[in-house]
Design a protein around this nucleic acid. Structure first.
Lengths: 208, 208
DNA sequence: TTTTGACTCGTCAAACGAAATAGTCAGACA
DNA sequence: TGTCTGACTATTTCGTTTGACGAGTCAAAA
């Protein structure tokens, strides 16, 4: 049993390496198997299909990334501090996991149900994080008390996601994850939006 | 000369009717000509190509829509009032001109240079409008004085545009402009974002 | 000067075959 | 019994062809 889990983990690690560099559609089961010096059939012994490997990989990755963040929210001195660390994390994620998420595909085509699922997962985690952040802000008196936390967190996630999508789609000819300067510029926009947005949550929430 | 202008106007009106219902790619020069009971060749006497007709149509339409808004900004009692009218206008535009802008295409494919042009135009006008709105807000003391008006207006346009794109792309299976309920829901989000955003511009702009 | 309709040419989408790849399974092995 | 394999099938994807449609031209007519 523990043996099985170990094997699964090995497979996920090998898969991650491939997905990270080539994305979902450009890595084959054959290749993953070859990297591990096993046969393709074995992969199907541990995982029901390619999608489930992919989902597992992404889940692990997201969990890893956000574990630190969640811890940090507890001890952070202020909303601004949380935001800065959040932006750092996001920049690193965009840089490193651009192909894993298959951003290219999201931007061009109609999203497949799998991609919807991944996007849902990512946004859920992000919403949860922002939600606790807002709650913390309220408890420390930094933010206005009358905020519908969940709703606003979700809205903010949408805003950030939208900003990202149009960035990928319109700014460059095709989004180049290694273009540090472009990414910088994008992160700057995100930062500005976050700042204004949170500033807007401090007092007088006139929305209903 | 005036004769020519009249003819051009007639062509643009006929074209608008078609574009509005079927979009750019699904209306042919033949059809526009037929509607006017003239030959296709005549169209090319007045316009160099299909694109230039399309651009002219869109320019007219945008100008028509924003003329009222610009006037209203002068006399409006408050930022909130402007926003409400702006949202009304936008809802009407989305409902009526959804196909004219070819939103479907934007969302799916890589944007063509024509679509970039149209998007640029639209955003330019919208930025100008929001910019004057912000300036007005500053002059009446509603908003903080230290705002980089142009920059923030542009940012806000991006945010709203992003919100719209992801709405079209992810929410429904395919965006249905006649789905009043969905549109309502979307406009609500826009309103919330605008409210929070402008609230964030009132005091303490801690962004640099 | 304006209009026409027959003409060309490029584009795009359906059709199709071939190659690549996901997924299956009966049997081997420990 | 639990794990693994490689040959097998089924499906997806990709490149090519082809035919139709529509943009744009132009010589001639009004």
């Amino acid at each position: 049993m523990a043996e099985q889990d170990l094997k699964r983990t090995l497979i996920l690690e090998a898969a991650l390496k491939r997905f990270k560099r080539f994305g979902l559609s450009k890595t084959t089961m054959e290749e993953i198997a070859r990297d591990l010096a096993i046969s393709k059939g074995s992969l199907y012994y541990y995982f029901s299909d390619k999608e489930s490997i992919y989902v597992a990989v992404v889940e692990r990755m997201i969990a890893d990334c956000f574990v630190d963040m969640s811890d940090y929210v507890e001890e952070a001195p202020s909303i601004d501090a949380i935001m800065n660390r959040y932006l750092e994390l996001k920049e690193k994620m965009l840089l490193e996991y651009h192909f894993l998420f298959g951003v290219n595909e999201w931007v061009k085509e109609m999203p497949s149900s799998l991609m919807r699922q991944i996007k849902e997962l990512l946004q859920q985690v992000e919403t949860a994080f922002l939600s606790t952040t807002i709650k913390k802000g309220i408890s420390t008196g930094e933010l206005c008390e009358e905020i519908d936390t969940e709703c606003i967190a979700e809205l903010l996630v949408s805003v950030l996601f939208g900003l990202w999508v149009i960035w990928c789609k319109w700014q460059a000819t095709s989004f180049d994850p290694t273009d540090r300067k472009g990414l910088r510029c994008f992160m700057d926009r995100e930062k500005k939006v976050l700042t204004i947005f949170f500033n807007g949550l401090r007092y007088r929430p006139t929305f209903n």
